Deep mutational scan, measured.
Amino acid sequence: EQIEAIAKFDYMGRSPRELSFKKGASLLLYHRASEDWWEGRHNGVDGLIPHQYIVVQD
């Protein structure tokens, strides 16, 4: 089940696996990879999304 999230802040990925996005961006989350990271998608690209930078939608 995919979960929708909105970016709270701009984020610049620090490795090829991390996604970069702007504040207000819509993100799709697949699952929680760790306490700090989600596996997800932004603009058709899959990668890691930092939990602290997003708001998960109910």
Rank of each mutant, 00 (worst) to 15 (best):
L19G: 01
A7Q: 00
K22H: 12
N43A: 12
A5N: 02
F9C: 03
K22A: 11
G44T: 13
Q2S: 13
W38G: 01
Y53G: 13
Y53L: 08
Y30E: 06
R17K: 14
D46K: 15
V56T: 10
D58W: 04
K22V: 14
A33E: 07
P16S: 12
E39I: 05
V45Y: 02
Y30A: 10
V56M: 11
R32C: 03
S26L: 15
A7N: 02
G13P: 06
R32E: 04
E39G: 04
M12H: 10
W38T: 01
E35P: 14
P16W: 08
Y53W: 08
G40K: 00
E18L: 03
V55R: 14
H42L: 08
L48G: 03
L27W: 01
P50R: 09
L29V: 09
I6W: 04
N43W: 05
R32K: 15
S20N: 10
D36E: 11
R17W: 05
R17C: 11
G24P: 01
M12G: 14
S20D: 06
Q52D: 10
R17E: 06
I3W: 11
G24A: 06
L27Y: 00
R14K: 03
I54A: 08
N43E: 07
I49V: 10
R32A: 05
L28Q: 14
K8E: 11
Q57P: 13
W38Q: 01
K22R: 11
A7C: 03
S26F: 15
W37S: 06
L28I: 08
Q57C: 11
K23G: 09
L29S: 01
L28W: 06
V55S: 12
L27V: 09
E18R: 04
A33V: 07
P50H: 06
L29F: 01
H51E: 07
I54E: 00
E1W: 02
R14Y: 05
S20A: 06
A7S: 09
R32H: 04
S15H: 10
D36W: 09
S34Q: 06
L29A: 01
M12A: 06
A5F: 03
G47Q: 01
L28K: 06
H31M: 12
Q2L: 13
G40F: 00
M12N: 14
G44E: 09
V45F: 03
F21C: 00
